[in-house]
């Protein structure tokens, strides 16, 4: 299989490392070789968390600028920050739920006009899908399940050669039992949203 590169960006606490891990397990269960790496500089203290997942043959653990096939953004301003990873062939799936950086919350900095920026990004990539992961996660039963909504959106987008049921199995076996039900609902809401949401 040709390498498919998936860049996941989020804010510390949004659970993207778990999402990447479930994606990896689902790839493994589908017999697809994969590699991944994470960067979490002081994530618990409000920093940015990045995961890079590479599916298919190959040996590198890293995604360079302009190289990603998919940019999965858990937070819209982080999606914009990571825009340089995309080329005209990239698919972008981003949540629209905002988590302003602390400096913005304190009124010392300005949160960008993400709506306009995302529209502008949409004109340069092959496909851009938006969804409100936090409200879907709340519908599923927990704001913490936004990562599973985003994973569902990725899984439901049809970009990856991994079946939805494989993801569901991995959520059942690899996430904490007390959250399995909520996680599965959140995942399904994500798969549903990606097929019915506005594609820019």
């Amino acid at each position: 299989m040709k390498t498919t590169r998936i860049m996941i960006v989020a804010v510390g606490g949004q659970g993207n490392i778990l999402a990447a891990r479930v994606l990896g397990e689902a790839a493994a269960a589908s017999g697809i070789p994969f590699r991944m790496s994470e960067f979490h500089g002081m994530a618990q203290r409000g920093g940015v968390v990045e995961s890079m997942v590479l599916l298919g043959e190959g040996k590198g653990y890293c995604i360079a600028d302009g190289e990603t096939d998919v940019l999965l953004g858990f937070e819209p301003s982080e999606t914009i920050r990571a825009a340089k990873k995309c080329s005209s062939r990239s698919v972008v799936i981003t949540s629209t739920s905002q988590l302003p950086p602390f400096t913005v919350a304190m009124g010392q900095d300005r949160y960008p006009d993400v709506k306009q920026a995302i529209e502008s990004m949409a004109g340069h990539v092959s496909k851009l899908i938006t969804l409100d992961a936090t409200s879907l996660a709340l519908q599923a039963g927990s704001a913490q399940a936004g990562n599973m909504v985003m994973l569902g959106a990725l899984a439901g987008s049809g970009i990856l050669p991994i079946e939805l049921k494989t993801f569901r199995n991995m959520i059942r076996t690899k996430t904490k039992p007390q959250f399995t039900e909520v996680n599965l609902i959140a995942f399904d809401l994500g798969t549903f949203a990606v097929n019915f949401s506005r594609t820019e």
Binding site: V11, G41, M42, Q44, R45, G46, G47, V48, A64, D65, G66, E67, S77, E78, I80, R81, A83, K84, K85, C86, S87, S88, S90, P101, F102, T103, V104, D109, R110, Y111, P112, D113, Q116, A117, S120, M121, H124, V125
Partner: peptide
């Protein structure tokens, strides 16, 4: 021919997220 990143100079500046004391 290296992959060409999409133009980002038209995108707004995103404020940093420096880690902070909790």
């Amino acid at each position: 021919s290296p992959p060409v990143p999409i133009p980002v100079d038209t995108l707004p500046q995103v404020p940093d997220r420096p880690p902070n004391l909790c």
